[in-house]
Write a protein that binds this DNA or RNA. Structure first.
Lengths: 192, 192
DNA sequence: AAGATATTAAAACTATCGTTCTAAAAAAGA
DNA sequence: TCTTTTTTAGAACGATAGTTTTAATATCTT
């Protein structure tokens, strides 16, 4: 057998993820990645093929973390209102607590790479479909228990909440102001 | 006096604007700009100093057009609900009717350039403040005439509507689906 | 028509891009 | 210990980035 890798693949992918998240695809150069990940250029290409493939892997990793965070919250079986309050609070904290103001990696990727990048398109669409599923499940459960004010279509309400989440992220990138974002959150949740 | 320019500065700026809008700042190269604008490299630098300055001018031009469109609508003195319906419809048409799926240039610029680019930050903040002003004016007028359902703070309602607008733009970039976007719009406007 | 001026096209500049290659070093199994 | 394999560091690749320069051209005023 041969010499083993000196680096842990997940560790360096995590570092690449943070860099792409902060700088975006085109502003993050291979040199930046080599420096940040702490591995050799050849090792980078050996392990991750090329820059774009590394980017997709990093974005997938980000999404996985996002998904598992949401699933943890979902498994607490909260009624709709506290559930969405917690979801939005997570978003707001992410936006206001980060000195780098990275925002949401998936949102950044959507605006930077679409409509040209097919793989990013797939990832983003999958993510939205997943959010829709979770949100509708929560809303339907609350509907059954008569915890819901609204008589609106659950589907549309779920879409609305997703849209509102992205709106918050957008405003939060431009003006990461806690009071502003909380006001928007409360107004959005007043419909539940 | 000397030889006059062979190109109209506003015409070529418009072309640069469309290119930056479609490709973003980093993906649009000087060569792309030269080809699209139909002028020489030297002329480009002579007239617009450098790439970043050209980008800012293009973004400002885009904002101007956005602003004047909104002001036209504002001057019709509509009640809040039809006013915002028209605003949102404009956004949705822009998203679903464009084969290039450019989205909103200001939104693209926000996610691509912030928080590093001070001039873009200023432009974006100015734009949000402007929207806030217009939206609040409309809401206050409707409040006076008792055309408004809600007793919520006008300020927060305005922020909410701005956020919702950006949410639509984000979703529309990912999934430019008319039915989906109209559903979100209706849900967002249901409180007015 | 002559001179002044700012245009134009295109080459040239340095820097960096993403990627590949070369060669030495290191670690495992035989 | 020797072979095999895969690491490593770093040079090298061609292409393109943004910008500047060179030199010729075209238009205006006098």
């Amino acid at each position: 057998m041969a010499r083993p890798k000196e680096f842990n693949e997940k560790d360096v992918l995590e570092k690449a993820m943070l860099l792409f998240w902060q700088k975006g695809y085109f502003q993050a150069s291979i040199q930046d990645l080599v420096d940040t990940m702490g591995i050799n250029r050849a090792s980078l290409y050996g392990a991750f093929s090329d820059k774009h493939n590394l980017y997709i892997l990093a974005l997938e990793r980000y999404r996985q973390q996002d998904v598992s965070q949401l699933l943890t919250l979902f498994n607490r079986n909260l009624p709709a209102k506290p559930f969405f309050e917690a979801v939005f609070d997570n978003v707001i904290v992410g936006l206001t607590d980060d000195p780098h103001r990275k925002g949401c990696f998936l949102t950044n990727a959507t605006l930077e790479m679409l409509p040209d990048d097919f793989e990013v398109q797939t990832l983003v669409s999958t993510n939205i479909a997943f959010l829709q599923e979770i949100f509708m499940e929560v809303l339907n459960n609350s509907l059954k228990n008569n915890e819901l004010n609204s008589k609106i279509s659950i589907t549309i309400l779920a879409d609305f909440l997703i849209s509102q989440m992205y709106g918050l992220r957008m405003i939060g990138k431009a003006q990461p102001n806690l009071k502003l974002l909380n006001g928007i959150k409360n107004e959005a949740l007043s419909r539940l």
